[in-house]
Design a protein around this nucleic acid. Structure first.
Lengths: 195, 195
DNA sequence: GAAATTATTCTGACCGGTCAATTAATCTGA
DNA sequence: TCAGATTAATTGACCGGTCAGAATAATTTC
């Protein structure tokens, strides 16, 4: 694939991200995506097989990007508590980005219940998130905060708390509450792990 | 509203529930809903203002019904641990019903990010769920399992775990894993509360 | 037989995907 | 070097299909 093709695809996916955030997964049209990308309607179909193909690449792109961001934040810390806090800070980055990402992500989760391809992309995301949790847990054990924990279960629990708190924050529709939800989430995970 | 009208509306909402579970929030048409209810296409429009009105009543109905079921399960128990277990058993009732409810509920959550009315209905549901958690927490305190907890935060955390675990189970697409996700969820909440 | 209810038909709008036509970019060879 | 040829990228009109809601017709009920 040429460099230009790569750039065009990125441009279209970026436009699709904003378009889906604004209009929703099902409501968004190829025309919308084209408009957001400042190209004509035929372009998305030229660079992707069809609408679903555009959106599947969008899901891949945003989950991968989030994962990289979170991982980088965590590996740059040395202590268990700093790693955990860095993780949560990276997740709850700010109201604007969180709203955009989770609006779109929720749309994809809803679709994934009826779409195997989206489920697979999300499964990879879960796996990646789990690997981040594992790094933190290993560090926590080596620091003696706890022992013999089930890392798979803890990974699921941490993921649950993050998704759950983020969804509940999203449903408040209140940007100002973002900080308190972040703090509550961090406290809840800390309390769960270190008892 | 006459009794017959009430029945018809219930019939349409029930049909809409199955239709949305099968086809998804945006994909479902009034024709689908009419077909599932074995009535003609004009009927839903006669008993409701429009498509969104049908679906809003559907969300109200299913969240209220789930809440009543969960509350009943909890108040019939006497000890903290039995109440908590009864709650989780009522939530993770069985793969078929959970899949149906959470498919539809996820659809509505995704819609709610762009629809105030759905957010309000969901806010009431959260409030109801929180009241169930509170009953369990009060009992746990009176039994001496813990003290001076923040009931609001704990309510949010418990809701997070339930939604989070349920979503993760849903994404596995594996009915057989239902039981283990239920157990993990119960363990995680227990571990969180009683440390 | 009039009003209420249900069934059918109509309408205007919109969407995804196609494709012929146009334009831009790249290559070729003298 | 550069003009002509070839390939790639882009455009937007168009088509088949679908839908929500309105309008209308048929039927039932009282």
């Amino acid at each position: 694939m040429s460099q230009k093709t790569e750039l065009r695809r990125k441009q279209i996916i970026k436009a699709a991200y904003q378009a889906v955030a604004d209009k929703g997964y099902e409501t968004v049209t190829l025309q919308d995506i084209a408009n957001y990308a400042d190209v004509s309607k035929g372009v998305p179909n030229y660079y992707f097989q069809n609408k679903e193909d555009v959106l599947a690449h969008l899901l891949e792109e945003i989950t991968e990007r989030i994962y990289q961001k979170e991982k980088t934040a965590v590996v740059n810390e040395t202590s268990f508590q700093d790693m955990l806090q860095a993780y949560i800070e990276a997740v709850f980055i700010n109201p604007r980005e969180n709203k955009k990402f989770f609006k779109v992500y929720l749309d994809f989760l809803a679709q994934a219940t009826r779409n195997e391809r989206y489920r697979e992309i999300n499964a990879l995301f879960y796996q990646n998130c789990s690997s981040i949790s594992k790094m933190i847990l290993v560090r926590g054990e080596s620091e003696g905060h706890f022992h013999n924990r089930n890392h798979d279960d803890d990974g699921k629990t941490i993921r649950s708390m993050i998704d759950g708190y983020m969804i509940q924050w999203l449903m408040t529709g209140d940007d100002k509450k973002h900080e308190t939800y972040k703090e509550s989430c961090l406290k809840a995970i800390t309390n769960y792990l270190t008892s």
